[in-house]
Deep mutational scan, measured.
Amino acid sequence: NKFNKELQWATWEILNLPNLNEEQVKAFIDSLKDDPSQSANLLAEAKKLNDAQA
């Protein structure tokens, strides 16, 4: 289903952001699991944090 694909993509993207630490990655992944419908928003937040920590 649509959410599953978005969830998988967002998870992969977050796991490959170079500037997030392990705790941050885990928090984002946990949030994705809690509410897959928010995957696009969570991914945007993760990318923002990644850029801020570059």
Rank of each mutant, 00 (worst) to 15 (best):
Asn1Ala: 02
Asn1Arg: 03
Asn1Gln: 05
Asn1Phe: 01
Asn1Gly: 09
Lys2Glu: 15
Lys2Phe: 10
Lys2Ser: 15
Lys2Asp: 15
Lys2Val: 14
Phe3Leu: 13
Phe3Asp: 14
Phe3Trp: 07
Phe3Glu: 15
Phe3Met: 11
Phe3Ile: 14
Asn4Gly: 12
Asn4Arg: 04
Asn4Phe: 12
Asn4Thr: 10
Asn4Trp: 15
Asn4Gln: 13
Asn4Pro: 07
Lys5Val: 07
Lys5Trp: 07
Glu6His: 10
Glu6Phe: 15
Glu6Asn: 05
Glu6Gln: 07
Glu6Trp: 15
Leu7Pro: 02
Leu7Arg: 02
Leu7Tyr: 07
Leu7Ala: 10
Leu7Ile: 12
Leu7Glu: 06
Leu7Val: 11
Leu7Thr: 06
Leu7Gln: 06
Gln8Asp: 04
Gln8Asn: 04
Gln8Arg: 08
Gln8Pro: 02
Gln8Ala: 13
Gln8Val: 08
Trp9Leu: 13
Trp9Ile: 10
Trp9Lys: 06
Trp9Val: 09
Ala10Gln: 03
Ala10Val: 12
Ala10Asn: 03
Ala10Ile: 11
Thr11Phe: 10
Thr11Ala: 05
Thr11Arg: 06
Thr11Ser: 06
Thr11Gln: 05
Thr11Met: 14
Trp12Thr: 05
Trp12Gly: 04
Trp12Ile: 03
Trp12Pro: 01
Glu13Phe: 14
Glu13Asp: 03
Glu13His: 11
Glu13Arg: 11
Glu13Pro: 01
Ile14Met: 04
Ile14Gln: 01
Ile14Thr: 01
Ile14Val: 05
Ile14Ser: 01
Ile14Trp: 01
Leu15Phe: 08
Leu15Pro: 02
Asn16Gln: 10
Asn16Pro: 00
Asn16Glu: 04
Leu17Glu: 00
Leu17Met: 14
Leu17Lys: 01
Leu17Pro: 00
Leu17Asp: 00
Leu17Ile: 01
Pro18Asn: 07
Pro18Lys: 12
Pro18Val: 09
Pro18Glu: 08
Pro18Met: 09
Asn19His: 12
Asn19Asp: 05
Asn19Leu: 04
Asn19Lys: 03
Asn19Glu: 03
Leu20Asn: 00
Leu20His: 00
Leu20Asp: 00
Leu20Glu: 00
Leu20Gln: 00
Leu20Pro: 00
Leu20Ala: 00
Asn21Glu: 07
Asn21Gly: 08
Asn21Pro: 02
Glu22His: 14
Glu22Asp: 13
Glu22Pro: 13
Glu23Pro: 06
Glu23Leu: 12
Gln24Leu: 03
Gln24Tyr: 02
Val25Phe: 03
Val25Thr: 09
Val25Gln: 13
Val25Asp: 00
Lys26His: 10
Lys26Phe: 09
Lys26Arg: 13
Lys26Pro: 00
Lys26Ile: 10
Lys26Asn: 08
Lys26Glu: 06
Lys26Thr: 09
Ala27Leu: 12
Ala27Gln: 08
Phe28Arg: 00
Phe28Val: 02
Phe28Pro: 00
Ile29Ala: 03
Ile29Thr: 04
Asp30Met: 15
Asp30Arg: 15
Asp30Gly: 15
Asp30Trp: 15
Asp30Asn: 14
Asp30Lys: 14
Asp30Tyr: 14
Ser31Pro: 01
Ser31Arg: 15
Ser31Lys: 13
Ser31Ala: 12
Leu32Ser: 01
Leu32Pro: 00
Leu32Lys: 00
Leu32Tyr: 02
Leu32Val: 05
Lys33Asn: 15
Lys33Gln: 13
Lys33Pro: 02
Asp34Gly: 12
Asp34Glu: 09
Asp34Pro: 02
Asp34His: 11
Asp34Gln: 13
Asp35Ile: 04
Asp35Arg: 08
Pro36Ser: 04
Pro36Ile: 12
Pro36Thr: 04
Pro36Ala: 05
Pro36Trp: 06
Ser37Gly: 09
Ser37His: 06
Ser37Pro: 03
Ser37Glu: 08
Ser37Asp: 05
Ser37Asn: 07
Ser37Gln: 08
Ser37Tyr: 06
Gln38Ile: 06
Gln38Lys: 12
Gln38Ser: 11
Gln38Asp: 08
Gln38Ala: 08
Gln38Leu: 06
Gln38Thr: 05
Gln38Tyr: 04
Gln38His: 08
Ser39Gly: 06
Ser39Met: 15
Ser39Gln: 05
Ala40His: 08
Ala40Leu: 14
Ala40Met: 15
Ala40Asn: 08
Ala40Asp: 05
Asn41Thr: 14
Asn41Trp: 15
Asn41Val: 12
Asn41Glu: 09
Asn41Ile: 12
Asn41Leu: 12
Asn41Lys: 14
Leu42Gln: 03
Leu42Trp: 07
Leu42Ala: 05
Leu42Tyr: 14
Leu43Ile: 11
Leu43Ser: 03
Leu43Trp: 05
Leu43Pro: 00
Leu43His: 03
Ala44Ile: 09
Ala44Gln: 08
Ala44Asp: 07
Ala44Phe: 11
Ala44Met: 13
Glu45Gly: 05
Glu45Phe: 13
Glu45Trp: 12
Glu45Val: 13
Ala46His: 00
Ala46Lys: 00
Ala46Trp: 02
Lys47Asp: 02
Lys47Arg: 10
Lys48Ile: 10
Lys48Arg: 11
Lys48Trp: 07
Lys48Tyr: 07
Lys48Gly: 05
Lys48Leu: 11
Lys48Val: 09
Leu49Asp: 02
Leu49Pro: 00
Asn50Gly: 02
Asn50Gln: 02
Asn50Ser: 10
Asp51Gly: 07
Asp51Phe: 13
Asp51Ile: 08
Ala52Asp: 09
Ala52Asn: 10
Ala52Phe: 10
Gln53His: 05
Gln53Asn: 06
Gln53Lys: 05
Gln53Glu: 04
Ala54Tyr: 08
Ala54Thr: 10
Ala54Ile: 09
Ala54Met: 10
